[in-house]
Design a protein around this nucleic acid. Structure first.
Lengths: 192, 192
DNA sequence: GTCTATATAATGATAGAC
DNA sequence: GTCTATCATTATATAGAC
């Protein structure tokens, strides 16, 4: 395997296990079975490793949020999309566990995050508009309602995994499905 | 001022500004205008300072979530309660920015957090049941609904400030009120 | 690309005087 | 309670050989 990728894989594993503050470049090098000098040949510093992992995360998000192009989306598509998002967040959980802290101290990271999440948010937006167009979702009287309901669903999509961790719950298929269930509960009064 | 309190005040300020990983005990001592040795007289190590701040946070939560005892609660009470929660989270924002990471590496901290939040959650529970009893909230057909709606509202209460920070928004009165608005949007179909 | 060896700085933490 | 002085350890990062 590519040494650069091996470093990133190892860092992801250790960061997920113990957090970015606790894991030094020496730890990563040792666990990857390479020398510290070699690690610094591939990455200038620890922050660049973190950036490399975020780049991976961004690429996965951009690849994994494709909506069906040939037909109108269904509630099942929403379910699939959100659960895929939970899986990705769980795979890169170190990033979400320290998200605000990591983004605050690296403007480039933050800019990338905002851009990627805006793309996903736009896809989310589209799916909700399609729901209204397909009469899955009944257009509420208040025109601000769809927007706000979507925002609540987005919040559940972004923070459900974190919420599970904060409350010391398992992060498994069952618990993730519960997040989707809450989302559907929010939409339920507006479903045709 | 009490030296111990001065250390905690200074640590809170620096942690909020730069994060717990970036701030050393030496930084705290210097900013507090005392010697490193003196800091270690009052706290055995950095983790104890973090614990001290969490203890403060827990005390504030326990003191600030009093529901009216003499009358039935109103939607205005919910508004007040949630905004007070946002203020507290903002005041101790370092804790929420790194919440999962900090709780994961300190079992005592986590146990305390779960206990305090459970008490607030119970209060949240009570207010929702009171809403139903007072016919503010119409009992939905599905008996699981009230519980799930409440859980969504709790999620908004816990993560709205984090969401603002992640998205690079200001954390001010206007934006906080938006979080409450989303909560009311979720409840709107069930309001009498 | 990869290694060993090493420089430099910072960190957490303690001892002992006042 | 508070200070100064100090230590052992660790972290980041680089130089130079292979």
């Amino acid at each position: 395997m590519n040494t650069r990728e091996k470093i990133l894989d190892t860092a992801l594993r250790l960061f997920n296990k113990s957090g970015t503050a606790e894991i030094s470049t020496n730890h990563i090098a040792e666990a990857a079975g390479i020398s510290p000098g070699n690690l610094y040949y591939h990455f200038h510093n620890k922050q660049e490793i973190i950036r490399g992992l975020f780049q991976r995360l961004y690429a996965i998000w951009d690849a994994g949020f494709l909506l069906p192009q040939d037909r109108k989306p269904t509630l099942e598509d929403l379910n699939t999309l959100v659960k895929a998002n939970y899986q990705i967040i769980w795979e890169y959980r170190f990033a979400y566990r320290e998200l605000v802290a990591l983004l605050r101290q690296d403007a480039e990271l933050h800019a990338g995050f905002l851009a990627v999440r805006q793309r996903e948010y736009d896809g989310f937006h589209k799916i909700f508009n399609d729901f209204v167009a397909a009469d899955i979702l009944v257009e509420p009287e208040d025109p601000a309602a769809v927007e706000e309901l979507m925002e609540v669903c987005w919040l559940i999509s972004e923070f459900w995994v974190t919420n599970l961790e904060v409350n010391g719950r398992n992060v498994d298929e069952t618990e993730m499905q519960l997040g989707v269930k809450l989302m559907l509960r929010v939409l339920q009064p507006y479903l045709a």
